Amino acid sequence: MSTTQNPPRQMMFQLSLRRRGISDQAVLRAMEEIPRDMFVEAADRAHAYRDSALGIACGQTISQPFVVAYMTEQLQLQQNHRVLEIGTGSGYQAAILSRLCGHVLTIERYRTLADRARARLAELGCDNVEVTLGDGFDVPADAGNFDRIIVTAAMEQIPDALAQRLKPGGVLIAPVGPHQGTQTLVRLVRTDAGFERKQLVDVRFVPALPGIAREL
């Protein structure tokens, strides 16, 4: 189970997000409600509420809280939205999304991460999240289209096949750039005329790789 946040740590966690420009009250509330210490490795629990990325199993990371909050805020979620997440990781981002939308389908290429995330999300009662072992570059056709798509690993470019899974008016957020280096968060909005693309902030994510991992 989660360790209990003491009030000063909880207050500083929220204050840090507000100081960095997170203003959506629903996002801030979700960040407060979801215990980040449940999603980090046991050795890192004392550092769970620092604004930094931390390592998890399979050589992956849990993103720093500001990046999670920022990407979530940029999605402009509504309670009826259906969301696709590429890269489940620890499950933390999916847990935040679950408080703000109707349904989350999250795809993870590492079985260990998918299984652990599924267990954590069930423990938290995130019943509107479906964790699937799969290839984020090859989303099953029967999964349908989505109001929002969030990619939590670096893509050298956004595949057109993924962008096409957005419903009209849909929004996609992804870190785009070289795998070894700095990427830029890109926000795509599907319009009647095509896609509006906006570059947001520089970030660093682990690479998004095709296929299902053979091990782990």
Rank of each mutant, 00 (worst) to 15 (best):
T3P: 00
Q5H: 05
P7V: 04
M11R: 13
L17I: 06
L17N: 00
R18E: 15
R19T: 02
R20E: 08
G21W: 04
G21V: 01
I22Y: 01
Q25R: 14
D37C: 06
M38L: 15
D44G: 06
R45H: 02
R45L: 08
A46E: 15
Y49T: 11
R50M: 13
A53W: 08
G55T: 15
I56T: 01
A57G: 08
A57F: 07
C58A: 15
V67G: 06
V67R: 07
V68Q: 03
A69N: 05
Q74K: 15
L75C: 06
L75T: 04
L77T: 03
L84G: 05
E85T: 03
G87C: 02
S90V: 06
S90P: 05
Y92P: 08
Q93H: 14
A94H: 03
A95I: 02
S98A: 15
R99E: 10
L100H: 03
G102A: 14
H103Y: 14
E108G: 11
T112A: 14
T112E: 13
T112N: 11
A119G: 01
A119V: 07
R120T: 06
A122Q: 13
E123K: 07
E123L: 11
L124N: 04
L124K: 00
D127W: 09
V131G: 02
T132R: 14
L133Y: 02
G134Y: 03
G136W: 03
F137E: 00
A141L: 09
D142Q: 14
D142G: 10
G144N: 10
N145H: 11
R148C: 10
I149Q: 07
I150F: 08
A153W: 05
P159K: 01
D160Y: 11
L162S: 06
A163M: 13
R165A: 11
L166F: 02
K167Y: 01
I173S: 01
P175T: 07
V176S: 08
G177Y: 01
P178E: 05
P178K: 03
L185W: 08
V186C: 13
T191S: 12
D192T: 11
F195T: 09
L200E: 12
L200F: 05
V201Q: 14
R204F: 00
V206G: 00
A208D: 01
L209I: 10
I212L: 09
I212Q: 03
A213Q: 02
E215C: 02
